[in-house]
Write a protein that binds this DNA or RNA. Structure first.
Length: 252
DNA sequence: AACTCAGCCAACCGCACCTGA
DNA sequence: TTCAGGTGCGGTTGGCTGAGT
């Protein structure tokens, strides 16, 4: 009973692929297609597990793989989608032609995550506060609005994957919620329920009141970081906000 | 030159989901 | 409806490489 192992341990080779193995795999798939991955290694004469063959093909040997560094546009798309849907690497990769989920995941873990961790760390470094943010109705209102907007955006994305075969070359800020997430915090740039007329700073998190507390107590240097954060068009989540605007917002 | 360390990335592992009998 | 087999996905690991000492 139970599932058969996908490959017999000890009989399959592991580790880095050789150019010869690559060639065998490419030749076989070019001629026959991959068919059933499980049976491919035997048919192709490769001492590899079917899963390993699939991974090698989809992540490296596929002819439509795009190589080279990520462009700023691709970077922004990853940031926006990750802020909206989290670690759904396959979904994010599907919006980046020629990129694989593994590549996107590695790029996020080695480049982008650090950037947001740094920003989040500096915000949190200022410590807790005694301000009772729950009593501030505009903020709690925004929090609930944000949650509904997020649900709506997720549903929209899900629907869109059926309707639109390819993504827009540049994400539309009215379409994707421009957002960032770090250490459970989330920053989004639009009050999505107001037809996008007014850009606002909104923050929420799994423990939203705590997140607001910490933001409310953020130091001057944290404010400077927010204002200095390199914001291109797609990352302009503080667009239109002056330093005083944010200070006033945080004070209320 | 030798060594250490951190970053990057290809590959593996295990689980969840899908599909067809 | 159930279940086995196939596949996809996300987390993790391990090796390679380059920078620093």
């Amino acid at each position: 009973m139970g599932r058969l192992p996908c490959c017999e341990k000890g009989l399959v080779k592991k580790g880095a692929w050789t150019p010869e193995e690559d060639q065998i795999l490419v030749d076989y798939i070019t001629k026959h297609g991959h068919g059933t991955w499980r049976s491919l290694p035997k048919l192709a004469g490769l001492p590899r597990c079917g899963k390993s063959c699939r991974l090698r093909w989809t992540n490296y040997l596929r002819p439509d793989i795009k190589r080279g560094p990520f462009t700023p546009e691709e970077e922004n798309t990853i940031i926006q989608l990750h802020g909206m849907i989290g670690n759904k690497w396959a979904v994010i990769a599907s919006k980046l032609p020629g990129r694989t989920d593994n590549e996107v995941k590695n790029f996020w873990n080695s480049h982008l995550k650090k950037r947001f961790f740094f920003l989040g760390h500096n915000l949190q470094a200022s410590g807790p506060t005694s301000i009772d943010m729950k009593s501030k109705s505009p903020l709690t209102s925004h929090m609930s609005q944000w949650e509904s907007a997020r649900v709506e955006a997720e549903a929209r994305l899900s629907m869109d994957s059926f309707i639109k075969p390819s993504p827009p070359s540049k994400p539309d800020c009215d379409y994707f919620l421009p957002s960032m997430e770090f250490r459970g915090w989330r920053v989004i740039s639009k009050d999505y329920t107001s037809n996008g007329d007014a850009d606002e700073l909104m923050m929420a998190g799994s423990d939203s009141s705590n997140a607001y507390d910490q933001l409310a107590d953020s130091s001057d240097s944290a404010l400077n970081m927010l204002l200095d954060f390199p914001s291109g068009d797609d990352m302009g989540f503080l667009q239109g906000q002056t330093r005083d605007d944010i200070s006033i917002f945080l004070d209320h």
